[in-house]
């Protein structure tokens, strides 16, 4: 409520003429420059609105044409330009050469980690641990097609059983029951034999009979002792690692209807440098084998 401006008895200062329930405000004026600074901020804001996108209207970009998206794109382009010399070196180098050069190796491992998370982790897991149902672990010491750098690179670049790439690794396991190659009893016997390779047979007599079936039908790919073949991508049946489960039902299923995991080819989708970085990274996960 406005009252008249008067002199405060205690301080001798004039009041502003404002009063609230008997409380009067003393007028201790701000310096004028303070007010001018405030006006300057308003002027600054006006200029800002004209130059930069400040209005919540689609397409109101301001005179400078600056956008947050454009700025990010430019930063990304600059970043890519900075990375290019190293990427070029990695593109031209064999994976062994990358490992031999500490600087390239560090770069490839860091880049491979990111590329793996973007492209591979969906099936093989964040740390390459794989998943049940045909997605092999890349961190263990068991490889279907080989764990040397060249093997890994070939698999990444061309994929597995990939019809679109002639260089893809391809083999087919017969569907022994479905195609009438073996009777149900024979399938049961050969499954018992396979379990016996890792000491887990439930019916010793069936397993013995199955040995003959195995030698006749399976050993050409999986070997006489069931240790598999990397040339053919035939898994080791005598170890502790089972891509599709190691219990009897899963083994019977595999023999009866076969398994044929598919992996896409990344050679055409990814920069060759990224394929090389992925090769080095996957090799480093723990299962990589020396050349």
């Amino acid at each position: 409520m406005p009252t008249k401006i008067e002199k405060d008895a205690v301080s001798g200062t004039l009041t502003t003429g404002h009063e609230w329930d008997g409380i009067k405000e003393l007028n201790t004026p701000l310096p004028k420059w303070w007010l001018y600074v405030f006006y300057a901020t308003i002027a600054f804001a006006a200029v800002w609105v004209v130059l930069y996108p400040a209005l919540p209207i689609q397409g109101a970009t301001g005179l400078t044409g600056w956008t947050a998206r454009g700025a990010i794109e430019q930063e990304m382009a600059e970043h890519a330009e900075r990375l290019e010399p190293r990427l070029a070196a990695i593109r031209d180098a064999a994976p062994q050469e990358i490992l031999a050069d500490p600087e390239l190796r560090n770069f490839a491992l860091a880049g491979g980690r990111v590329a793996f998370a973007n492209n591979c982790a969906a099936c093989h897991g964040a740390g390459g641990q794989g998943a049940q149902g045909g997605f092999p672990s890349l961190a263990d010491d068991d490889w279907l097609w080989g764990g040397k750098l060249a093997d890994i690179r070939q698999t990444i670049a061309h994929g597995i059983r990939n019809a679109e790439d002639e260089a893809a690794r391809t083999t087919m396991m017969p569907r022994f029951l479905a195609d009438g190659l073996l009777s149900a009893a024979q399938v049961n016997e050969v499954a018992e034999h396979v379990l016996s390779l890792s000491g887990r047979a439930t019916d010793a007599a069936a397993a013995r009979r199955g040995a003959a079936v195995f030698a006749e039908n399976c050993s050409s790919c999986h070997g006489n002792d069931g240790r598999g073949s990397r040339e053919l991508g035939a898994p080791d049946l005598a170890d502790q690692i089972w891509l599709y489960g190691g219990d009897k039902a899963a083994v019977v299923q595999s023999v009866s209807y076969a398994r044929a995991g598919v992996m896409p080819a990344w050679g055409g989708r990814l920069d060759p440098a990224v394929v090389n970085m992925l090769t080095v990274y996957v090799h480093s996960l723990g299962g990589g084998e020396p050349e």
């Binding site: 200062t13 004039l14 502003t16 003429g17 007028n27 201790t28 004026p29 701000l30 310096p31 303070w34």
Partner: peptide, 17 residues
């Protein structure tokens, strides 16, 4: 108690000196 003698000298009613 006050110490604003040199700025409080503005004309009455003005909030800026």
């Amino acid at each position: 108690p006050g110490g604003v003698a040199h700025v409080a000298g503005g004309e009455a009613g003005s909030l800026y000196a």
